[in-house]
Nucleic acid binder design. Structure first.
Length: 446
DNA sequence: ACCTGATCATTG
DNA sequence: CAATGATCAGGT
């Protein structure tokens, strides 16, 4: 039986606004939170405790008559105080045998409906669900992003068609990810067109996309990308007038002052901050930045795009490594981030005299992610055993990968003082050769 | 000539 | 005043 409780969208929204401020504890009239392990429990609590649907397996407060699907999603505050979605939103399982015969339009796959009624609650690490509070609700029309969804779907489909289901990764696509499914990472399933068994995967709205939806709660926008289709195009267009110029020349031409003393090590970042925007302001600069996590990096390369330096990431925080790799923030970060590399050519030249060459974009594949997992686990083990010798020092790897490196001020003894403060004086760095290979892969694909 | 640990100017 | 984004520079 379908409960046609709401006859119009307005009626539904007006009623739903009443949920804001409530906590799961007070909504949970059937004590569903006491049982553990049910992933969809929050949705059920809202369906039964707020919309009054009966508690049985068929109970679905999906408002089919209005073509609206209910989703309960969490957000959290990051260390830098920005708000992000807690996790990706998993949709249906990908049936490898079926997908190759499906077209986007008819794929039963994704969303039963194209409008989502999202109820946002705030999640706190290590706290209890009954205390979590609902902060807002929103009707999101996904047809706005249809072009990208369709493209993402076809990327996944084509890969399976080529017998490469085992090579699928979240990095392949923009909004619609193929995320791994199954409690054990060792589960494998059959695929057409190849004898290799692949990890079972599901369609999911990437968490960066969910964050984008969250932002549309408080940033106004019409979702118009204007003349640009991709972030790369947008950035290249901004940098176009400066190709062939040195860092010093670019800086003085945009700031009006020449660099007198020593050249700041982050002169590239100072330039990209001014020209393109600071990383945290990007979302306000252009809608393109809204639903994917972009990170702008500046890097010196030689004439073949071989990096002269490693890529550094933010300082390691001990407490972040309490989480196992599979559920870690670092894994999510590497899965979802798109690095924009602004390349300056400068073999034999010093910082400041390097010449703006080009822009490259890299994302990480499942294979990359698994390698990074090794480094992560080494840090985790070092922390658990309080033994710095377990850290992923560069010399520990035969092949280039993600390694640990000091990052601080004179006198900080990054390794000796590794356990002193939660935020360490060390960071992850990505090896030059590794980056070179990523750049080469992308250039080949183009 | 690299690696890899160390360091620095800028930023929030 | 510590975190960030990156380069510097000493030892091999």
């Amino acid at each position: 039986v379908n409960y046609l409780k709401f006859r119009s969208v307005d009626e539904l929204i007006t009623y739903t606004k009443g949920i804001v401020g409530k906590r799961f504890g007070e909504l949970d009239k059937y004590n569903l939170l006491e049982k553990k392990g049910d992933k969809g429990v929050l949705g059920k609590i809202v369906e039964t405790g707020f919309y009054g649907y009966p508690l049985n397996n068929d109970a679905k407060a999906d408002f089919d008559n209005l073509c609206i699907e209910l989703k309960v999603a969490g957000f959290k505050e990051k260390r830098d105080k920005t708000l992000v979605a807690k996790e990706r939103l998993v949709l249906s399982k990908i049936d490898y045998m079926e997908i190759i015969h499906e077209s986007y339009e008819f794929s039963k796959l994704l969303f039963k409906n194209k409008r989502l009624l999202i109820i946002w609650y705030q999640y706190y690490e290590g706290k209890n669900y009954p205390m979590f509070q609902i902060h807002g609700c929103q009707l999101y029309d996904m047809t706005k992003d249809e072009i990208i969804f369709k493209n993402d779907f076809n990327i996944i489909k084509d890969k399976v068609k080529r017998g490469e289901a085992h090579l699928l990764s979240e990095g392949d696509t923009s909004y619609l990810g193929a995320c791994t499914k199954g409690a054990k990472g060792t589960d494998r399933t059959k695929q057409p067109n190849s004898d290799k068994e692949a990890k079972p995967r599901a369609y999911a709205l990437k968490s960066a996309y969910m964050t984008g939806i969250l932002k549309s709660l408080y940033i106004d926008s019409d979702g118009d990308f204007g003349q640009y289709r991709t972030v790369e195009e947008y950035i290249k267009n901004i940098l176009k007038p400066f190709y062939g110029l040195t860092q010093r020349e670019i800086y003085s031409s945009i700031c009006g002052i020449t660099i007198a003393g020593s050249v700041p090590k982050n002169i590239g970042k100072m330039i990209s901050d001014r020209l393109i925007g600071k990383d945290r302001d990007l979302e306000y600069k252009h809608d393109l930045f809204r639903k994917t996590t972009y990170k702008i990096k500046n890097i010196p390369v030689d004439k073949d795009y071989y990096p002269l330096e490693r890529l550094s990431f933010r300082n390691l925080v001990l407490s972040e490594f309490l989480t196992e790799w599979e559920d870690s923030d670092w894994k999510t970060y590497f899965e979802e981030v798109t690095l924009i590399l602004i390349c300056y050519e400068g073999g034999g030249t010093k910082n400041g005299d390097r010449v703006l060459k080009s822009v490259k974009k890299i994302t990480f594949t499942a294979d990359d992610i698994e390698r990074f997992g090794k480094s992560y686990r080494m840090v985790r083990e070092a922390i658990i055993k309080e033994d710095i010798s377990k850290l992923p020092y560069p010399k520990k790897f035969k092949e280039p990968t993600l390694v640990i490196a000091p990052k601080g001020n004179a006198g900080d003894d990054a390794y000796e003082n590794f356990f002193k403060h939660d935020t360490t004086k060390s960071c992850f760095m990505l090896d030059e050769e590794y980056i070179y290979n990523k750049i080469a892969q992308i250039s080949r694909a183009e």
